[in-house]
Design a protein around this nucleic acid. Structure first.
Length: 901
DNA sequence: TAAGGAACGTAC
DNA sequence: GACGTACGTTCCTTAA
């Protein structure tokens, strides 16, 4: 008997399931069932079976339901995060597949996988290999027991444990009790990481000894240790894996049997596990297979275009195509400064070409020149036909515009296809989409060029490799489009959002970004100077009040001074349990008569303005244009809004007087003025429309001051006071966000029951609104998504969660998203229409910013009246008559943004 | 020194 | 816990 035969292999199925779920992209089968974790764990298991396992093996899972650890947690009021729904769904199919592979699956009621494995390992007479991703298992290692992480390939014996953790296996429980483990909910001691824990254990010998001599440890870490001494036994208990369970196992339960290939085939098909299916067919071909094998990837044919003849041949193909995919390779991510290094195109799946034009590395010649290539391509690029397909084409369009090429026929952006299909997907980049939808592992930029200090410019990468990478991007974009667009066009609403809104908006955003907004450097520099001076004064006073110097920007130091040294009451805690020093807390303390919190608040607000705005914006003024060029991101938010970065122009201060001054630096060119146009109460209007509430609709129809009208209803008065109006405004906003009575009360400084009475009264007066909210929640539950008036969808997988917090969060999102999203759709429509009109009318005016419900234009003085009138019409009509409420606008004009409001 | 998370604060 | 959507800065810890 060889070692492999007698050795027992124990697989920690639960740890792999979790790890694979979080590590791998969210793959789904054709039917939309999540399969990422299935993929990952089965691949891992195949590898393990091929390389390590003999006859004796079992895969162990945590039992569903309560375990004795849950009882422990409960006693100490901790809670375990529930298993994500998408993960839970993959558990049973995974167990089925493992069983079909002939590998025993163990699950013991009331016990976690760790403990079953610990017990089996302790009982085994011979060598044991534990396959897990969980570092806690290191405590089980000895001369007989070894760990293997099959995913990373790392192997741990006793020496390895010592090397990795700095302590021997026997000390791992002590170590874990100190360091803690968020995934296992072991509290540990704050501020103590792996290094400190190992140092202590080596110095004092054991946790017990350390506890006794905790007084000797100096510094913050020592304080932290002493503060948490009482919790150490709990941490130790939680970290301890049981090795003495009474398990009632039959001998055969740890032995492999013959795989059930029919069952495997069925499972692999059902969950779209193509690679595994292909392997299975290769090993055990089906006798009769009606569906046939899935096609293996045909050989890709990527061409490197380096001479006129080849270029000519490709141009012919492009001209003949109805659509082709296009992708630029450049030397920068910044669209304003990027230089083109090469272009790739794809006309059919697996058929793509790369045209290098700016490569400098060895073997880069022969190579066509950029001028020449653009000259040949220009007619195609500037024509509406053929249609252009690509990933994030706004970038390519902006870069080409820098070369005087006006890209037209931008018809399909795969990033936007993905976004419209599921805005909540965290990533819409090409590599993620390729993995998720095509099951293709693409070459990443990082793999090609490295990262950090070792990164080399794309232009210097070996041309063959660069060419393959670049051509692949175009190829993948084309294939993705063919995969995604049918899904988009299958739903009328999604099709509308994509074709009528997102795609037409793309070139508009490119133009807005490239045009930029003029920012006056001197105004900001002057303000920075003033802010610095005031911060110095406040800082000095704060240090004096505190009796010591400290960093006013450090919440941790503030916390230590206010709550530990000065003993002020802790008003609120951060999610991590630290006493919060947030604004509301300091306001409260300040109201109790303490001076220091007020000074900290003042310093914070000054520091924020200086670092985020007056210092940062001047750095982003483009040297060539003297303007700031933001990036608007079209595939980021869950609701359909745009977002803005580098810089974010959508959070420039406006609420306070001193913050608002920053807007004075946003100016118009000489001879121009800034025109601002804001939708008035747009989300409330949309709520009126969606709910169809007659009272609310009527109030908007007669042009009432909506907050005052609400106040009159809620407070039952003829004419509401300003104070009542303010409260009503808070209620109105709260409704849009799904606020609770508790939240409203806090906001208004009222007791909860009082706030609840206001809400009750509101719903009494506007019953349609309450019905709408219930309807929306119900729809979300029934269909799993909510939608905007135009048909944009937002999926809410957690709407049926058993976890109340998650479920209620999903419910609030469900209520907010149709309103926020419809408003987003409206202003997108308006931007498209305004941009089109400006071009058509030959106006010199330009859109320069979008801030969710506001458009800012830079307008030649002579055109002001005409542009203002037309903008009002276009924005007011952006709903195309779909809303039963009027859309009202507030317009303003000024030399700078502050003045224009 | 880099990377990532926590806390905080700005906008709509 | 408790109000939706974003982005950016600073501090701080850990790892390299």
């Amino acid at each position: 008997m060889t070692q492999r035969d007698e050795r027992l292999v124990l697989v920690d199925g639960s740890s792999y399931l979790y790890r694979a779920y979080f590590a791998l992209p969210a793959l789904t089968s054709r039917d939309g069932e999540p399969t990422g974790a299935l993929h990952g764990v089965l691949n891992m298991l195949h590898k393990l079976l091929a390389e390590e396992a003999g006859e004796r093996i079992a895969v162990v899972f945590d039992a569903p339901g309560r375990t004795f650890r849950d009882d422990l947690f409960e006693r100490y009021k901790a809670h375990r995060p529930p298993m994500p729904e998408e993960l839970r769904a993959q558990r049973e199919p995974l167990k089925e597949a493992i069983a079909a592979l002939g590998v025993p699956v163990l699950e013991v009621d009331g016990v976690e996988a760790d403990d079953v494995i610990g017990t089996l390992a302790a009982r085994a007479a011979g060598p044991v290999l534990i396959s897990t991703t969980d570092k806690d298992m290191a405590q089980l290692v000895d001369e007989r027991v070894e760990l293997l992480n099959t995913m990373s390939g790392s192997r741990l014996d006793a020496a390895g444990v010592r090397e990795k953790f700095g302590v021997p296996p026997a000390a791992i429980r002590d170590y874990l009790a100190l360091v803690g483990d968020t995934s296992d909910n072991i509290p540990g001691v704050p501020k103590v990481g792996p290094k400190t824990a190992a140092k202590w254990l080596n110095e004092y010998g054991s946790l017990e000894a350390l506890r006794e001599r905790a007084d000797e440890i100096r510094g913050k870490v020592g304080e932290s240790l002493r503060a948490h001494l009482d919790e150490l036994p709990l941490s130790y208990d939680l970290a301890t894996i049981r090795c003495d369970l009474e398990l009632d196992l039959q001998p055969g339960e740890l032995r492999r049997s013959a795989p059930d290939t029919e069952a495997l085939r069925r499972l692999y098909r059902r969950y779209d596990l193509r690679r595994l299916l292909a392997e299975l067919e290769a090993e055990a071909p089906a006798a009769d297979d009606p569906e046939g094998d899935p096609d293996p990837d045909p050989e890709v044919a990527y061409t490197l275009v380096r001479d006129e003849a080849e270029l000519g041949a490709w141009l012919e193909q492009l001209e003949a195509a109805e659509a082709f995919a296009l992708d630029l390779e450049t030397d920068s991510l910044d669209y304003m400064s990027a230089a083109i290094v090469g272009l790739s195109v794809a006309v059919a799946p697996y058929r793509a070409a790369y045209i290098p034009v700016g490569h400098t590395g060895e073997g880069a010649s022969p190579q066509l020149g950029l001028e020449r290539v653009l000259e040949r391509l220009r007619p195609l690029l500037e024509a509406e036909a053929p249609q252009k397909i690509g990933q994030n084409l706004k970038y390519d369009m902006s870069v080409l515009a820098g070369y005087g090429v006006a890209l037209r026929g931008v018809a399909y952006d795969t990033m936007l296809e993905s976004y419209v299909l599921d805005a909540t997907a965290t990533r819409h980049d090409l590599d993620s989409l390729a993995a998720k939808y095509l099951d293709v592992e693409t070459v990443t930029y990082e793999q090609l060029c490295g990262k950090g200090a070792k990164q080399i410019p794309f232009a210097e990468v070996d041309l063959e490799r660069a060419g393959h990478y670049a051509a692949e991007d175009a190829d993948i974009a084309l294939r993705l489009h063919r995969h995604l667009y049918p899904q988009v066009s299958a739903e009328a609403g999604l099709q509308r959002v994509f074709t009528a809104l997102e795609m037409p908006l793309l070139p508009v955003l490119s133009r807005v970004e490239r045009h930029g907004v003029r920012v006056d450097r001197q105004v900001l520099e002057r303000q920075s100077g003033e802010l610095a001076e005031r911060m110095g004064e406040v800082e000095a006073r704060a240090h004096e009040a505190a009796g010591e110097a400290f960093n006013l920007a450090s919440p941790q130091q503030i916390q230590a001074i206010l709550f530990e040294r000065m003993g002020l009451p802790v008003v609120q805690r951060t999610p991590k349990g630290q006493p919060s020093t947030a604004e509301a807390v300091l306001e409260e303390l300040s109201a109790q008569g303490h001076e220091l919190p007020r000074l900290i608040l003042e310093h914070r607000s000054l520091a924020k303005l200086k670092s985020t705005y007056t210092d940062k914006l001047p750095q982003l003024i483009h040297p060539r244009t003297g303007r700031v060029h933001t990036s608007y991101h079209q595939a980021v938010t869950a609701t359909g809004r745009l977002s803005s970065s580098d810089p974010n122009l959508q959070n420039i201060p406006v609420r306070t007087e001193e913050g608002r001054r920053i807007r004075k630096a946003f100016v118009a060119e000489p001879g121009c003025r800034l025109l601002t146009a804001d939708y008035s109460q747009v989300e409330l209007r949309i709520m009126a429309h969606l709910s169809g509430d007659s009272g609310l609709l009527e109030a908007f129809a007669r042009g009432a001051d909506i907050h005052r009208a609400t106040a009159a209803e809620v407070f039952g008065v003829e004419r509401a006071s300003d104070e009542q109006r303010r409260a009503a405004k808070t209620i109105n906003f709260g409704l849009i966000y799904g606020m609770s009575a508790w939240g409203l009360g806090r906001q208004l400084g009222l007791p909860r029951d009082q706030a609840q009475r206001y809400i009750d009264r509101y719903f009494e007066r506007y019953p349609g609104v309450q019905a709408f909210m219930e309807r929306t929640r119900e729809q979300a539950r029934q269909r799993g998504y909510v939608e905007t008036v135009l048909g944009r969808r937002l999926y809410l997988p957690e709407i049926g969660s058993r976890n109340r917090q998650r479920r209620e969060y999903a419910e609030r999102t469900a209520i907010n998203a149709p309103m926020q999203g419809t408003a987003a759709d409206l202003i997108k429509r308006a931007m498209i229409d305004v941009d089109a009109w400006l071009a058509e009318a030959g106006s010199e005016a330009r859109l320069v910013m979008q801030v969710h419900d506001e458009l800012v234009l830079e307008v030649p003085e002579g055109e002001l009246d005409a542009v203002a009138a037309r903008v009002r019409e276009l924005m007011g009509g952006a709903d195309g008559g779909a809303l039963r409420v009027p859309l009202e606008l507030e317009l303003g004009v000024g030399g700078d943004w502050e003045e224009a409001h």
